[in-house]
Nucleic acid binder design. Structure first.
Lengths: 266, 266
DNA sequence: CTGCAAACGATCATCGTCAATCAAAATTGC
DNA sequence: GCAATTTTGATTGACGATGATCGTTTGCAG
């Protein structure tokens, strides 16, 4: 088990339970207590959690397992700045009166933050995004039916019948787990299926993915690259993939980051 | 059980009951009296509660600015105490493993507050109730598809197709605009239709209505009284309506007000 | 007003957790 | 293959949390 895997595990656990104890993590990861304390310290530096005696808790509003911001506000597993830049660029592609679809994802959540001045119809299967749009924007919100899953705040349903079969969108903005020559990739089959269902209601598909998404892995293909109209990413995207996409006729937009601050070294 | 878990438990209990006693908490948490007193002291420092001899009581409404509490927590237009008593009584009719339906309404929202310890499947068309259940309870939540309306946080859809057509519930708890000899009444046709759709997925119908609901008016009949299995109300319900309901074979439960009857202004 | 029982705050011993340090192992670069 | 760097694991003294016990205060009833 490597560093990143442990971090992912810790953050997942944290989202599920709201609080983690070092001892539990030791049994869960097999790592030593010292290592886990170091992990927690680094994650705290990144603002992804808050340490408490005996473990750590979610960084946001204490106590209340507030789904909204707790899931994303500070828990951007990867570079939040790039995602925000991508989200802004994607938001600029929207016009009042549009009908759009946003799937559940951290990048789409950032994008929802950028839509406060818009007046659109938005279909989303993300509970936090729905709350953000309803509470802080003038957009109309449509939700699919299904079970609301606690950890990521996603609405999923195994059935075909749904009110969203009457929804027709011009654009779907999709945040994904990875994007490879095989297509747009998710890690979970249920999520992949939900996104495919949403996609069937949209004319154009705009994938929003910061450059880290080009290296990540996954196993479930949501759709082939031929279905993609546009990709919005940042300057760190590998040139060969950009060329490959453009060769397929996919429009590739590069979002300009406001300030480049690499935080790897500390 | 560690510090934060105890705090969570204490605050949850406090929100449910309005007052907690140290002895009760000792039996509940297994912690010693000294520890619990320390906990209460720290929580009081944070303004989360107010200490009284023997325990602690709620400090005030901790406004989260969210849709959740903002819609109901402090804006109970009518008698909140009666609604809370009714909600508690209704919650006592639920058992772990049940599948229930909650429509959107202030009384059902109070009821959701009382379900934090339950483990059920809950279908609701209320966004605030869904958020409450997901954030603060272990219940599974299922949502119908449709448009999310901002003001009351209700999900409505004019279409028949919906994933909830696969939901089967033993009981539906319905909060309504009024209850008259004509049946269960709503004021808005769209809401009435949504509730009728939910009702079609439930075996028994339990109407939860504080006594003020027997005088109010409305125009849309959701269902006739014959469809009602049980009515949960408070001691202020008019005797003739109670008799009428019982004559129809409807079970009528009267919720007892907690302790103090602060009928300052009737 | 007085007595009693419950609850409170303070203190202290015990235990678990924390941060710092150093050694071992894995990874990287040459 | 060897050395430098990074990551991990163990040890130690310090710190915080817990629970028991004390004497004191509060609330209640007679």
């Amino acid at each position: 088990m490597h560093e990143r895997e442990r971090w992912q595990l810790i953050l997942n656990r944290l989202r599920e339970r709201g609080i983690v104890r070092v001892n539990d993590l030791a049994g869960l990861t097999g790592a030593s207590l010292a290592t886990l304390r170091r992990d927690l310290a680094r994650l705290e530096d990144q603002g992804q959690l808050r340490r408490v005696h005996g473990g750590a808790e979610t960084a946001e509003v204490s106590g209340q397992g507030d789904l909204t911001a707790a899931s994303f506000g500070a828990s951007q597993t990867t570079n939040a700045e790039a995602k925000l830049a991508v989200a802004r660029k994607a938001a600029s592609l929207c016009s009042d009166g549009d009908s759009i679809i946003l799937n559940a994802g951290s990048t789409t959540w950032f994008m929802a933050q950028c839509l406060r001045q818009h007046r659109m119809q938005v279909l989303t299967n993300s509970f936090p995004i729905a709350q953000e749009l309803i509470a802080n924007s003038g957009n109309r919100v449509v939700l699919p039916g299904g079970e609301l899953y606690r950890e990521p705040g996603i609405i999923l349903s195994p059935f075909e019948e749904d009110a969203i079969q009457h929804f027709a969108a011009g654009k779907m903005f999709m945040s994904c787990y990875a994007i490879t020559p095989m297509g747009v990739i998710e890690s979970d089959p249920l999520i992949a299926r939900a996104e495919a269902k949403l996609l069937s209601r949209a004319e154009k598909l705009i994938v929003i993915a910061d450059s880290s998404k080009f290296e990540a892995r996954g196993n479930m293909v949501v759709c082939p690259l031929a279905r993609v109209s546009t990709v919005v990413t940042d300057a760190g995207a590998p040139a060969d993939m950009v060329d490959h996409l453009r060769g397929l006729g996919v429009e590739v937009l590069i979002a300009e980051a406001e300030r480049e601050t690499k935080l790897s070294a500390a």
